[in-house]
């Protein structure tokens, strides 16, 4: 699997926020085998305090995917992306342009606008979007090479609110990497996403807020692998009625 020409073997992308401690974070990263971790930029106090976190994360050897979390306009997101590239030294950017502070729903109009500006500036954009097909097309037209549809609102842990829409998205964009971003709560959610044919899952809160984040990170990896294997194995079609799996032919007449 490739994202913008970079070969990736783990289909789990992991967020780095809300862990009980930096050690639990790095333990979770190493235990689950993720190769991509998301980070953000926030105001620095004089004297600097963010270096320790950044150093610890770099030591994991993961690819860094900076985000534009919290940005509400295209201009804010573009400027934040430029600042992120300056610090992290990567053209990758997880582009978030938030429409509502309460729902954290993406403003897809500003998202497309920002994606176009950033792609023209050499960024490789990972857009946090909805499952809307037309928006997906416009993001690809703007220069994105992959899409990151939501499963449910950020941090909600509700799982996949609309599996049918994601199935349609898979069918509509057969050759575009699709990464579920946001809403995953349990391993079964991640497994279902992969069974639907998604290429990867990005999650944070489900691991960070688990009672045992390291254990949950490992569980997510297992679920993602199982779901992917299931998708590849071409699941049977569901049926409305029961169909016996044991042959009727040859049954004894005992009644």
């Amino acid at each position: 699997m490739q994202f913008y020409g970079t070969e990736i073997s783990s289909r789990l992308l992991l967020g780095t926020a809300q862990y009980p401690s930096p050690k639990v974070l790095t333990d979770a990263i190493r235990a689950c085998g993720t190769e991509i971790v998301t980070v953000s930029l926030r105001r620095e106090s004089a004297g600097g305090s963010g270096d320790g976190f950044w150093q610890g994360l770099r030591d994991t050897g993961c690819h860094i995917l900076p985000n534009t979390a919290g940005c509400h306009t295209a201009q804010e997101a573009v400027t934040t992306a430029q600042m992120a590239r300056d610090v992290f030294g990567t053209n990758w950017i997880k582009l978030e342009v938030i429409g509502h502070s309460d729902t954290l729903q993406p403003d897809v109009f500003a998202l497309v606008e920002a994606a176009r500006v950033l792609a023209q500036d050499g960024f490789q954009v990972f857009p946090y979007t909805t499952d809307d097909l037309v928006v997906g097309e416009k993001l690809l037209d703007a220069g994105c090479e992959l899409l990151m549809p939501w499963g449910a609102p950020i941090g909600s842990g509700q799982g996949l609110r609309n599996p049918d829409a994601l199935r349609a998205m898979r069918a509509h964009f057969p050759d575009t990497p699709l990464i579920i971003d946001a809403g995953i709560g349990r391993p079964s959610d991640a497994c279902l996403a992969m069974e639907l044919g998604m290429d990867a899952v990005l999650l944070n809160t489900a691991v960070a807020k688990a009672g045992d984040p390291v254990g949950m990170a490992v569980a997510m990896t297992g679920a993602i692998k199982a779901g992917r294997a299931g998708f590849a194995a071409d699941p049977m079609d569901s049926r409305d009625m029961a169909v016996p799996s044991t042959p009727i032919l040859g049954m004894a007449e005992l009644a």
Binding site: G15, T16, A17, Q18, Y19, L25, T38, V39, S40, L41, R42, R43, E44, G48, S49, G50, D51, F53, W54, L57, P66, N67, A69, M83, V87, F88, I154, G155, N204, T205
Partner: peptide, 10 residues
């Protein structure tokens, strides 16, 4: 002036 630094993020 805005001065930003790496921080945990999702």
């Amino acid at each position: 002036l805005e001065v930003l630094a790496p921080m945990q993020g999702g």
